[in-house]
Design a protein around this nucleic acid. Structure first.
Lengths: 225, 225
DNA sequence: AGCGTTTTTGAAACATGTTCTAATAAGCGG
DNA sequence: CCGCTTATTAGAACATGTTTCAAAAACGCT
């Protein structure tokens, strides 16, 4: 007599890879770090080849030399693994962007450049990207919270592009960068980007269109009526 | 030796409820229409109570007095049922909006009013809305195509609100309503709305915030810099 | 090294979406 | 009404995410 409205699984347990809000991948022994890495790498590899469904946890466990139960000690769910991979990806992207800020004379140029890079980074591995997008949208609160953190990171980068300044990665994420208007523009652009990526993921339009749509949105907000 | 990258299920078969592009719910006998209705109603009821996971197809089949196999003759997947329900919902919303267009003296007022209604319509049944959003984001191409059709419908309504004219529901959907700028504004607003709804679905912010964020986006595009 | 604690393992079990099949029922053209 | 075609059924079967559990291994500490 299971109660469908409250699925038995996914209780308040913690996964070893947690620390979304706190220290990233906290105090894990070296061997555990290696296990985690193997799991994530295998999962990403499978996702790149065949998308969300290709990431079969039995396969992941076997290929990363870990028992299924252990895998669930590290991650709450399949989506959790993929979101973890996304987190790493976002961090890499953030570092790369901070190291080499998008070029362009006008804010619109820089934003265009920025989102071209971001879109390219996502769509370069289409199956992985689709798998990640699907994981994001699963509706889980825990996952949504992590996604909110990515949002903040991206917003910071967008504001930096808008201003033509390098992003300050050392600043606390919660801190509002830029003035109100800049933050709002960044917020809207990010939503447009996400929604457009979702459309791309569903095969509605090519990757190029994603970047174009964001540019259109940016130009609508940056230019006067 | 199943190939994970190409899941066996979901081949090019057609479901009876198809006709997304063509006639809606084509030539079905009366008894079949009744079956379809029972299935959808039961599924919606379960979704309202417990969200996506509460819609257990075995339960749906039993409660709607239909065999599991029959259910799969009508719908390709669980997501397909929920998207069908969304389609009906969107059509209702469209009719209601056309009958009583959003009020307001300025475009911004009308858009605000419009999105308040739309957001309220979605978030009034939170579990159902979350279930639907999850279904939308599943990444299936067939489903994405249907979602694209909703997009067109919504865009038409948004443009009408923007102009302060009643929407012409008789016009073919593909036809571009409004001038280019209006279409773009509508497109951006819809993306913001969707992305913000997704955030709401994940528990990141209350429903009120969704409407606010869309209003902010609209004001950024309607006012000059 | 020895010991108590924690982690990992291996394997089974469970839940649920999806598919398959043989038998039955329904619908329909004549 | 007959026979043919198609739809429906009941139920098993399959795939895969998730959970559980007892035993074995690894770990950390003194």
């Amino acid at each position: 007599m299971a109660d469908p409205s409250r699925p038995a699984r996914r209780r308040g347990r913690r996964s070893l890879s947690d620390g979304a809000a706190r220290a990233p991948v906290a105090r894990l022994a070296a061997s555990q770090l290696k296990r985690l890495r193997r799991i994530v790498d295998v999962a990403v590899g499978l996702a790149e080849k065949g998308g969300f469904e290709a990431v079969r946890l039995r396969d992941v466990a076997e290929a990363s030399d870990v028992a299924l139960g252990t895998l669930y000690k590290y991650f709450r769910s399949k989506e959790d693994i993929l979101v973890f991979a996304l987190r790493e990806e976002v961090e890499r992207f953030e570092a790369a962007t901070a190291a080499r800020p998008p070029e362009g004379r006008t804010p619109l140029d820089r934003l265009t450049h920025f989102f071209e890079r971001a879109t390219d980074g996502m769509t370069r591995r289409p199956n992985f990207a689709r798998a990640v997008i699907r994981s994001i949208a699963a509706g889980d609160h825990e996952i949504a919270t992590q996604v909110a953190a990515f949002h903040l990171r991206m917003t910071r980068l967008i504001v930096a592009s808008l201003r033509g300044e390098p992003a300050d990665l050392a600043a606390p994420l919660a801190e509002t960068t830029g003035n109100e208007r800049e933050g709002r523009v960044a917020f809207v652009l990010q939503n447009v980007w996400f929604a457009s990526l979702a459309g791309w993921a569903g095969g509605l339009h090519p990757a190029k269109t994603v970047a174009e749509q964001v540019r259109v949105a940016a130009s609508l907000m940056l230019h006067s009526a």
